[in-house]
Structures are given as structure tokens and as C-alpha cells.
Write a protein that binds this DNA or RNA. Sequence first.
RNA 1: GGUGAGGUGGCCGAGUGGCUUAAGGCGCACGCUUGGAAAGCGUGUAAACGGGAAACUGUUUCGGGGGUUCGAAUCCCUUCCUCACCGCCA
Length: 421
Amino acid sequence: MLHISDIRENKEQIINLLQIKNFEAKELINSVISKDDLRKKTQQKSDEVLTKSNQLAKEIGVLYKTGKQAEANLLKNQSAELKQKSKELNSCKAELEQEIKNILLLIPNVPHPSVLKGNADIDNEIINEVGEMPILNDDAKPHWELTEDYDLVDFKLGNKITGAGFPVYKGKGARLQRALITYFLDKNISSGYTEYMPPLLVNEASAYGTGALPDKEGQMYYMPEDNLYLIPTAEVPVTNLFRDVIVKDFPIKCTAYTPCFRREAGSYGKDVRGLNRLHQFDKVEIVQIEHPENSYKTLEEMVEHISSILNELELPYRVLRLCGGDLSFTSALTYDFEVYSAAQEKWLEVSSVSNFESFQSNRLKLRYKDENGKSKLCHTLNGSALALPRVLAALLENNQNNDGIKMPEILHPYLGFDIIS
RNA sequence: GGUGAGGUGGCCGAGUGGCUUAAGGCGCACGCUUGGAAAGCGUGUAAACGGGAAACUGUUUCGGGGGUUCGAAUCCCUUCCUCACCGCCA
């Protein structure tokens, strides 16, 4: 959520920048500002009334104590009038505040000025392409066949015990999963991130805090009896650790492994075959909380960090800088990482790294004190490092040969084997 | 699931209708003191939203919402949360 004072100060700039996201904000912004003007006036009036009323109450107290009941009763009438007025003003103000908030919730985050306009994913800018695409044999198989041949992931069993999109990892498949998680965490920790193991269910306040609600309500699994949501990403619990916090030392760097749960309604076909898209998947996430001055430098640093993981995994990948049309509602600047899955001949997104600037921290009330002692909003950033299933898919497809599936060297100590055969 | 006790500032904690402008303590910051430090002494120490160039100042906030009252941290209703004991349980 944007901050109303930011909107007031940088109105024209915000309207212009939002056009990069193909969002026409002029009307909403004009209306939110005029409502805010009215809100201020209403508060002024309300403050005046309350000041008088407070004074009266004190005078009445004094009169009672000195035994002047009659005079006190006179003042009581006045006080009742003021009370009526203040009630009206108050409800008017509350209504305005709600209207303002409702409008603010509709306005997406302002993109960074460097973001290119564009309509969809084909307009994203490829800023780096690393590694060579493997040349596979003619009989190379997609990962959903490999996982069956080598008994690594059992989709049918998952169907039986839960449903589609809930695979069962098995044998070396399960070990590979666990090896990847541990390797990712170790790698993140060695870059200064602190590991967390957060709850997998969050309350409503947390879901609002990171913007999972109200925008993405249908995406989350919900437990109505307890009013809790299954997390769609570790970003939600981890970022909310810092809800209502005033930060003293920057940066705060967190990493967490969690399963992620997504309902993902309405997508079928080969895009969702095998491990490409699941209702439950594993992910290691990195989150940083930064001073606004440093957040873009930190974003670059996170991109470097994720690149180095993919280098070590020896997977061909490319880095995309998302265009305005493809940027999420909450993001100001996002880089996507895609690995090449050679048998599917497809690029698969395995990480998305974003700077949310103060869009999340405004809702989270995540602040720091500036040099004048004033509260300011922090910047929040996060990214996957990494999402597991598609990494697994690419590892299996790209490294298959007649002897089996060779594992990258970096994973050997974690795996306890170097080939799946 | 049952029963009970609670939710007050960064933290602890007092507070049963106006002498609360939330006592007192801890912590923190600054100053005095010191060769330096500790102790001691003094001063200051929340947030949000307004007004003001600023100094300063108004309002709200004692878990949330509602009510009684001229006046509520304090009384009433409601809701959420936490803790303790019992039961069940990895």
C-alpha cells in the first residue's frame, strides 16, 4: 500500500510512473487526495470539539468538589451537545479513513523509473544468459518420465493420498530434495543470512501484512475453524516477524526453508505437467529489510547471490528484468531467474527477486528512525533461493545420459552419491 | 476439551470514576563527576493523525470493538489473545 503523504508530495511523478505498469491512476489519486483533504478538515473540527469537551469535564469536576451542583448541571447540558457533535464528526472521519484505505488498496506499487513499459512476459528484458544448453540424445526424456523410471517422485501416490499437485518424493528423489534444501540454506547462511523456521500457518493480520490478503485470497488454503491460512511462501511469515517493529540496525537478512501451498486454480495442460506447477512445493526464501538508500544496491547483491547458486548447480539460466506489464502489484523492480529444462525445451522460473520499497512496510508498520528521530518506512526485499521442483526438473533432464543422471559436484557431499542410476 | 488467572509505555510494574499530565523501577540517551571507567547525581526518554516556518501545540491510543457517565486504564457488554493447572497427545 502506498503512503498517502507520498502520494500528496509526488502526485504527478507517481501517476506517470504507474503508466509504466499500464495503470491509469489519475482519477483514483485525485479522489484519494480530496478525501484526505476532507479528512484533515474533519479532524480539525473534531479536535476543537474534543478540546472544549475535555475542558468542560474538568470544570465540572471542580464544581462538584466545591459543592456547586447547580452550575455543574448547566455545564452538563453544553457537554451533551458537544458529545453529539463529536460523535458525528468521528463517524464521518472513520468513514473517510475507510474510503481512503479502500482506494489505496487498489493502487499498485510504483515501479522503479528504470522499468521498461511493456505488456506481458515477452517484453521482459533478458539481461544475462549463462551456461550452455546441453545437447541431449534423441531418446532424452522429460523429467516426469525420468522420475518414474528411476523411482524418484510418485505422482500417482500423491493423487491417491491427497490429490493432483501433491507429489510424493521417494528414495534418491527425496534425498536430492533434502540435499538441495540444505545446500541452499548453507549457501545463504554463508552470505550472512540468519536461518528461521517459521510456522506454516499464519493468521489474518500476517496475510494482510505482506499483501497476500486481500489481493490473493483465492490463492491460499484457508482453515475456517481456526481462521488461519497455509503460507503460499515463506515471505509471509518471515516478513511478518518484523511487523510493528522499529529497526535499529540494517540490513536484516533472513532465510527460511518452508513448504509452500498454492491453490493455483485454473491452469491445465503441459505447463503443469510433472513438477512444473504444484499445490505443495518446497522453497528456500531470502528476505532483507533495508534502509531506503541501500535497497537497490541490496537488490543487485541478491541477484548476484542467486546467480552464484545457479552457477554452482551448473544449470544454464537467464536473468530477466521484468517489464511494467509483468511486474506484480506489490513490486517496484523484479528480476526473474529461469533455468533451461532441456528435454521440455523450456525456460522455467526458479526465482523471482523483488524490491518492494515501502509498499509492504507501510502495511506492516515496519520502520526505522532517521537522523532527526522521525519514523520512516523501511524497504523490504525478497527472493527465492531457490524454488525446488523446477530446479529438480532441470537437473534431471539436463544431466541424463546412458549411465544415469549425473549430479553436480556441489551437491555430492550433501547427497552421499554422485549419480542416479 | 475442562477450569482458573491475566492483557497497562522499549521492558518490569502500581493504579476500583476527577489530586494520573499513567506512580515507581529497569533499560536507553545526554550532561555533571573522573586520569579513565563504574557508582552516584541531574535531565530527557512511545506511537499515529492534525495545526505551525519554527519554538511549540491539539486530538487519539492502557489487547480490539461497543456501552454507561459531564468525565473511564478503572464500571458494564462483547471479542481476540496469553499464561497456569487438569485431560488428551508426538
